[in-house]
Simulated scan of single mutants.
Amino acid sequence: MKSVRLTLQHGPENVHPMHRFVAEHDGFDRYRMVASNFAHEGHNAFIFHVVGDRDAYRNRLEALGGFISVDVTAGDGDAFYVYVREEPGELSEQLIAAFSRESLVPIPPLEYRMDWSVRFGLVGEPDDIRAALEAVPDGIETTVERVGEYRGGDHAVETLTERQREALRVARDRGYFAVPREASVEEVADELGCAPGTAAEHLRKAQQRVVSRLDL
């Protein structure tokens, strides 16, 4: 089972208008598709996770129109979720057909980046992956960033020792990673029952392991 990390680079002639809006608006930090349903002929359904200006996003959706249904719901902080049903255009149909071959499984989330590119993982048989890449419509540049065996989304966490996991859990729950920081390494150490230097070492090694294995 082969796994690849892909980037599809759109241009001004084929980028989705909502992707263009988020990329060109200063009020957004993150834009990802976290779930989708292409099973119904005539329309597609998506859930997006967005970090940024919820009112601006909703207003732009309303201005564009043409959607079957839209629902925008609040998340934590500046984050919110968007449920969209829409009729697919020709480009969407071509992309869906390319990446819906028999053995292929796109791995969410699909990250919509500020340079109009879309980045995601894909798992399947090598022949189907090659055929999908060849079927990407003209005008979209495809880059294969990584090729390997699928290791699962939690691989980075699975490499931690139990003590390192505990240190990260305590630090997270106490607010050590909050901005601004709400807990000191001494407070984390107190809950772990170890010296501050030991707690700091657990956190440093845990962060190094996780970050080095993230699929960035």
Rank of each mutant, 00 (worst) to 15 (best):
I129E: 05
R151E: 15
S92H: 03
D115N: 12
W116P: 06
R165D: 14
T159S: 12
L133R: 00
E158T: 12
T143M: 00
L91V: 04
V147K: 04
V170S: 10
G77V: 14
V123W: 02
V118D: 00
E125L: 10
T142A: 04
I129P: 11
L122P: 08
G153R: 09
S103L: 14
S184F: 11
L110G: 03
V147D: 06
P137C: 00
S117G: 05
F99Q: 09
P126H: 07
V179W: 14
V144Q: 02
I68V: 14
V70S: 07
V136R: 06
W116S: 03
V118Y: 05
E111G: 01
P126E: 13
A135F: 06
G66M: 07
G175S: 08
D78N: 11
D128K: 02
E111C: 01
F80G: 13
Y83K: 12
I68N: 05
D154N: 11
V123R: 10
G175D: 12
M114L: 09
D154I: 14
R101M: 13
R174T: 11
A98R: 08
E134K: 08
E90R: 03
D76F: 13
A97R: 01
A98C: 01
R130M: 10
A178E: 15
D138E: 15
F67A: 11
S100Q: 08
